[in-house]
């Protein structure tokens, strides 16, 4: 799959933002007034910034309001609805904390639930796709959710929780890669099933429909960078997982914490790039590619 920067930034930063909102909604840390404002500002910058960046890949962003209508069937529509619900609920909750020194617990818990739902619905947009076997497994939502909770904990300044959750997220990430590598073969979709010519003999793509490229090849058959996948996986894991945990284990210091956050974000961005770049869409089989 083509790793579109807008979608990578969206899923990483909104994942972090909503992850932080989950912690804030549950009252961890129990901040009010100015410090609450700072926490909420960071969360909203990330979540809303991510959402805005996701509209950059739309052909017609001016019609985006229509995307709230099909929540009965579409995970993308559900994501839009959950995101707005989470942002409105958490906005009201934050208003109470910042200006009235009041903790409306029920509102916070509801906001946290909708924040979790937003990250889950985001992950389901990918996990629902049978056409991309690497994504079509329960580990995909687990991967997104664990990274979101871990990143949220890190931003919320929860040192112990962050260290544990980051290690957990790293483990899930590793498992996602190991299982993901086998998914295309396990799906049973190959050139023989794509063309149904396999019972005659071995199928080979002889001539593509056009001499030039096309939308399908640009969007679905992205092979650049796959050869560095192994190295990039190690880099991603070191940055997202090992480095932040090491920094968290040292005596707490704000500068070290900033480095931990930066390393984690860079690692998650690398992992998310691989999430797209390594994903094989079955339509590539019609072109003899994967």
């Amino acid at each position: 799959m083509h790793p579109a920067p807008s979608v990578i930034f969206f899923s990483v930063f909104s994942g972090l933002g909503f992850g932080l909102l989950v912690w804030l909604g549950l009252g961890i840390p129990a901040v009010t007034g100015g410090s609450a404002f700072a926490f909420f500002a960071i969360a909203y910058l990330l979540a809303v910034g991510g959402l805005i960046s996701s509209t950059f890949h739309l052909g017609h962003p001016e019609r985006a309001l229509k995307a709230f209508s099909q929540w009965r069937s579409s995970w993308l529509s559900r994501e839009a609805c959950c995101a707005v619900a989470a942002l409105v609920l958490m906005g009201l909750y934050g208003l109470g904390l910042v200006f009235f020194d009041a903790r409306w617990t029920l509102l916070g818990v509801l906001g946290a639930l909708f924040s979790i739902a937003t990250v889950f619905t985001t992950s389901m947009i990918y996990a629902q796709l049978k056409t991309v076997p690497r994504w079509h497994m329960p580990l995909t939502p687990l991967n997104f959710l664990s990274l979101s909770f871990a990143g949220g904990a890190l931003l919320a300044g929860q040192v112990t929780a962050a260290a544990i959750l980051i290690l957990l997220a790293g483990g899930i990430q590793l498992l996602t890669w190991i299982m993901g590598d086998k998914r295309l073969a396990e799906s049973g979709t190959d050139m023989a099933s794509a063309t149904r010519l396999g019972n005659i003999g071995t199928v080979r793509a002889f001539e593509p429909p056009h001499t030039g490229t096309n939308y399908l090849l640009r969007e679905f058959v992205h092979v650049i960078g796959r050869k560095h996948a192994r190295k990039l996986r190690i880099i991603a894991l070191v940055l997202m997982c090992l480095l932040p945990v090491l920094l968290l284990l040292l005596p707490f210091n704000h500068i070290l914490a900033v480095f931990a956050v930066l390393a984690h974000v860079a690692g998650v961005l690398t992992a998310r790039w691989l999430f797209f770049a390594q994903a094989e869409h079955v339509v590539g089989l019609y072109y003899g590619k994967r």
Partner: peptide, 18 residues
């Protein structure tokens, strides 16, 4: 159509093009 492209992602046959 908002041109999000998700339907083309969901089609295994490459039948949709933006």
């Amino acid at each position: 159509c908002i041109g999000c492209g998700l339907c083309a992602w969901a089609c295994p046959y490459g039948a949709r093009e933006m």
